[in-house]
Design a binder for these strands. Structure first.
Lengths: 135, 135
DNA sequence: TTTAATTCCTACTCATTTAGTAGGTTTATA
DNA sequence: TATAAACCTACTAAATGAGTAGGAATTAAA
C-alpha cells in the first residue's frame, strides 16, 4: 500500500474545509466530528499541514483552521507530499537517496522511473476543487 | 514508498535467470553472488516465487531454480503480487478489505480507483522480456 | 480582567512490517 | 555414500504507522 492513513485523512480535512465555504476559522473539533477521526490524531496531521503552509491555524477562542488558497490552487501532490515520507515507488528514487552502485547495470530503473512519473503526473493534475462534491 | 526490497529483489532474480538462457537449474548461491544479495534473505524470497509457481526449485546436487515459462509470458504484476502484501494504493481497495462505511460519501474513492487502475495497467503491460538487457 | 476555547508541543505506547540471520532437515545427483 | 543443493522453522532488530496523554501558550469573548 502506498498512501498512508495520514495522507488520506489530510485530504479529507482539506476537502472538508473547502466544503465549508467560509472564511472564518473552523475548529479541529468540528472537523474531527464530521470526519469521524480521533481529535488527537488529527491534530498531529494538521500540524503537518500548517507547517507545510497549506493551512493556517489560529489559537484561542474563535480559532481553528482555514485554507490559505482557493481549492483550485491545491494540487493533490502539494498536500500528500506533506504527509507521506515519500511518493517515490522505490527507495533509489527518493530525494535523499544515495546513488545506487548498480544503477548503470540496473534493468529495472527505467521501469521505476516510468512509474514514478506516471503517479506524479496523476497527482499533479488533480486539484482539491476536482474532488469537491464527488459521488 | 510502494515497492519493497523483496519485490525489487524478486524481479532482479527473475531477470537474472532469464539472462542465463539455460534450461538447467541455477543454484541460489550463483544468483546471490551475481546480484550481491544475502543468500539467506534471497532464499526467503525464492520460496515465495516457487510457491507462486513462477519458478521451479530442484533440490540436491545439480539443483537450483529455473523459470517455468518464457520471459515474454511473465507480466511484472504476476511477479510483484507474490512479494508485495498488496499493490493497491490505499487499504480500502485491497482484496480482503471490509467495505468502507463512508464509501457512498467518499470524495476521494474515485481518485484512488483511478490511480490503482493506472498502476495496475502499467505493470500488466510490461513483461520480464521487456526488461532484459536494459541499459 | 478573567474565563473558556482553541492550537501548539513533547513525549509516550503498541502493533505491524520489513529486512535479515541462524541452524537444521530433506532430497537428488555424481 | 558424500556432497550440494533447496526447503523449513524460528528468531532478531529496526523502522514506521497509528494513536494516546497531558499540559503550555494564545486569543477572543464575557
Amino acid at each position: 500500500m502506498m498512501i498512508s492513513t495520514r495522507g488520506r485523512y489530510a485530504l479529507r480535512v482539506m476537502i472538508d474545509l473547502a466544503e465549508q465555504k467560509t472564511d472564518s476559522y473552523v475548529p479541529l473539533k468540528e472537523i474531527a466530528a464530521r470526519q469521524e477521526i480521533s481529535e488527537k490524531y488529527l491534530e498531529s496531521i494538521l500540524k503537518l499541514l500548517v507547517k507545510g503552509k497549506v493551512l493556517t491555524g489560529l489559537r484561542g477562542k474563535g480559532g481553528g483552521y482555514r485554507l490559505n488558497k482557493a481549492p483550485e490552487e491545491y494540487t493533490i501532490t502539494s498536500i500528500l507530499e506533506l504527509t507521506e515520507e515519500t511518493l517515490a515507488p522505490v527507495s533509489c528514487l527518493q530525494k535523499d537517496a544515495e546513488p545506487c552502485q548498480r544503477a548503470h547495470a540496473c534493468r529495472t530503473l527505467g521501469m521505476w522511473k516510468g512509474l514514478d512519473q506516471l503517479v506524479r503526473d496523476y497527482f499533479d493534475h488533480i486539484t482539491l476543487a476536482d474532488l469537491l462534491g464527488n459521488e
